[in-house]
């Protein structure tokens, strides 16, 4: 009788322990996942594009604003300098720039 009770208690503890183990493991995974998410989020926030998106790159490696005034406004906000191209031709000409 006693041995049955001991065996039953042991099984109960094992199952509870298993459940506890599962819960602890799941919690650990959740923490790890949150930690993993936290790093790229911070990096993404650092590399977050400015509030006012640029007009386009027009096939170059440079982002262009629509007008020099818009560029100046964004430059003040981001503490940058301004680059203005004055053109009288097509950028498709490889010798232009």
């Amino acid at each position: 009788m006693l041995s049955r009770k001991v065996i039953g208690l042991t099984k109960l503890l094992q199952s509870q322990g298993l459940r506890l183990g599962v819960i602890v493991t799941a919690f650990g995974f959740a923490l790890a996942f949150a930690g993993m998410r936290a790093i790229p989020l911070t990096a993404a926030q650092q590399a977050k594009p400015p509030a006012e998106a640029s007009c386009g790159d027009y096939g170059t490696a440079i982002d262009f604003e629509a007008t020099p005034a818009a560029a100046a406004k964004r430059a003040v906000a981001e503490e940058k300098l301004v680059m203005v191209l004055h053109v009288s031709g097509h950028f498709e000409d490889p010798g232009l720039t």
């Binding site: 982002d63 560029a71 301004v82 680059m83 191209l85 004055h86």
Partner: peptide
């Protein structure tokens, strides 16, 4: 240029 400047263009 993208790091230090904000760029634009004008046709003159």
């Amino acid at each position: 240029v993208n790091r230090h400047f904000v760029s634009s263009f004008q046709k003159v």
